[in-house]
Amino acid sequence: MTTATGRRDAIADAAIATLARDGMRGLTHRAVDKTAGLPEGSCSYYFRTRQALLEATVRRLATLDEDLVAPIAGLPAHLSVNDLADLLTGAVELAATDQRDRHLARYELSLEATRRPELRATLLEVGKRYRELATALLTAAGAANPDRQGPDLVAYLDGLMFDSIAGAGAREFDRAAVRRSFGEVLAAMISGSPD
């Protein structure tokens, strides 16, 4: 017997898959039902409006990202630039391979949020956690100004993920190049720069 929470998660997972496959225009309650293999009307039963479905999808993405965030919580209080560069390179590689659909869905939701203030609020709430995590990682690595640099690191990470998944450069993921890039950026952050 499936619980209501289990059914909601399954529907949100189907919404992620639908967004990755068909984009925002293809995301309908009916399309999500079909992707989930559920009877027609199931999605709209649990998520009455499109807004409710979009917000549930953002929150599900955040829950799924726990497998990325949990290991970071166990890292030592002091990190080397090399350790941090390796960690971030692994995140980009995972985004470009095993979690590609998640990130495609996230990009669709991010663009939609520019036109939907309620969705934007949900994305900002979820995204705050990643900026705080980046600040903590930079603090552990001895960055010059981690409070200012944390959001910049997230933006850089997002940019590399986007380029690896959907960028116009049509580049294959190159682990060595991404690792080198993170090493350079982190070295600059750690050494500090004039304000």
Rank of each mutant, 00 (worst) to 15 (best):
L75D: 08
L87E: 05
D163A: 12
F162M: 10
D174W: 03
A188P: 04
Y156L: 15
S181F: 02
P117S: 09
D67T: 14
T57M: 05
A113Q: 11
D86L: 02
A85N: 01
L27I: 07
T5W: 09
A166E: 12
S191H: 12
T28Q: 12
A143G: 10
L119Y: 00
M24P: 02
G127D: 12
D101V: 12
A113W: 13
H103T: 09
P76A: 15
Q51T: 08
D158V: 02
L124Q: 03
V92W: 00
Y130A: 05
F173C: 06
F47C: 14
A170D: 15
E132F: 02
L160P: 00
K34C: 01
T63H: 14
T3A: 10
R59Q: 01
R180Y: 05
S181E: 02
D174R: 07
F162E: 05
R120W: 01
A187E: 13
H29F: 10
F162Y: 15
A52K: 08
R179I: 02
D22F: 09
M161I: 15
S193C: 02
L38I: 03
L88W: 09
P39W: 05
G6T: 12
I11V: 13
A177F: 07
A17P: 01
N82S: 04
E118L: 05
A143N: 05
T3W: 06
S110D: 15
E40F: 04
D22E: 11
T18N: 01
V69W: 04
I16L: 11
D86A: 03
T139L: 14
A166G: 13
E112H: 13
T49C: 07
A70C: 07
Y107D: 15
C43A: 08
A12G: 05
G150K: 12
V185G: 00
A170Y: 11
V69R: 14
D101R: 12
A12V: 04
Q149S: 14
V154I: 15
L109S: 07
A144L: 00
V185Y: 06
A177I: 07
T18P: 03
V185M: 10
D33T: 10
E118D: 07
I190C: 08
H78D: 00
A113H: 14
T135F: 00
R171I: 06
M1K: 08
E172D: 09
H78G: 00
I16A: 04
T114R: 09
V69E: 11
I72K: 13
G26M: 14
V69Q: 09
S80I: 00
L109T: 05
L138D: 09
G183T: 06
A77G: 03
Q51W: 04
A121L: 06
H29A: 15
E108D: 15
G37A: 12
R115F: 13
T28D: 03
V92G: 02
S110K: 14
R8F: 04
E66F: 14
P146K: 03
V178F: 06
L79Q: 01
L79Y: 02
A170F: 11
A62I: 03
A136D: 14
L153V: 06
C43P: 01
G142R: 11
G6R: 11
L68T: 04
T3D: 05
A4K: 12
A141Y: 10
A121C: 04
L104P: 07
A4Q: 13
A12S: 08
P117W: 02
R115E: 10
D195W: 09
R179H: 11
A168H: 06
A143Q: 05
I190W: 03
L68V: 04
R171Q: 10
